[in-house]
Design a protein around this nucleic acid. Structure first.
Lengths: 127, 127
DNA sequence: TTTTTAACTTTATACCGTAAAGTAATGAAG
DNA sequence: CTTCATTACTTTACGGTATAAAGTTAAAAA
């Protein structure tokens, strides 16, 4: 890489759009689940789909609700309390934006598959 | 979602393959940069490309080295110490795996773009 | 009426990302 | 030649947060 390329591409791989709140694995998991079920999912369904513990799911849902990405509905089913979670319109939009950024990461990487592995095992240019 | 679907799809959105070490934004940034430059990148080049501070980059590189995803070469250029970082073969492989998982997240989300927004704003089924 | 189960919530801890401070070595300035 | 500034990092310290463990509330069973 020659130095004159640096300005042109500064921040090229900073991936600014990878929103912290969505990027976190557990929450990405939750949001991706909800994205597939526009009518929402129950607490226990989410727990299974995302392989999360109760406490864990609860906290992440609170964070997502705080950020207005998810809305929660408390109700009862068979005389048991039930919580339904679903994406807000805002959450859906933000998720789509996030995925757009992800697509860039994937695209960046896909050129890589063209390169032969051997080029990665040359000695460094300082040697 | 009916309950009988749960077993079939338990963990469906857990995204187990999203390796913590790679998934972290700053490190994803570093690895994606290095993936594009198989001959490696100098410390300052990485700093620019990823928009990271010195301390930050240093710590993340140490973590990546510890995990055997990146290898570092210390040398001198113009009588100045220079550090060259590059992906290990293992790191390259792991990154490719990671990206494969990302593609799944993107694919999960792409079905979403087909769904009309209005379906997300129906009242919950408990109401 | 005591115990168990279900469905969460709250608390506490340990980890970790980040910025600020520190280090070492070179080069310039006076 | 001695001090100051710069380069190229590394180490330390702090704050935030992900996660598991403990706690809560209410219904159902024993």
């Amino acid at each position: 890489m020659n130095p004159s390329d640096l300005e042109k591409t500064a921040g090229r791989y900073a991936y600014d759009g990878l929103d912290r709140i969505i990027h976190e694995k557990a929450r990405l998991s939750i949001i991706a689940s909800l994205a597939g079920y526009s009518e929402g999912l129950l607490f226990n369904e989410l727990k299974e789909l995302c392989s999360l513990t109760d406490g864990n799911l609860s906290r992440h849902l609170a964070i997502l609700q705080e950020a207005d990405l998810v809305q929660m509905w408390k109700g009862t089913r068979n005389k048991r309390p039930q919580t339904l979670a679903r994406l807000t319109a805002h959450g859906r939009r933000r998720f789509l934006e996030y995925v757009t950024r992800l697509e860039r990461v994937v695209a960046d990487a896909s050129q890589l598959t063209q390169q032969p592995e051997s080029r990665a095992t040359l000695r460094p240019r300082t040697a």
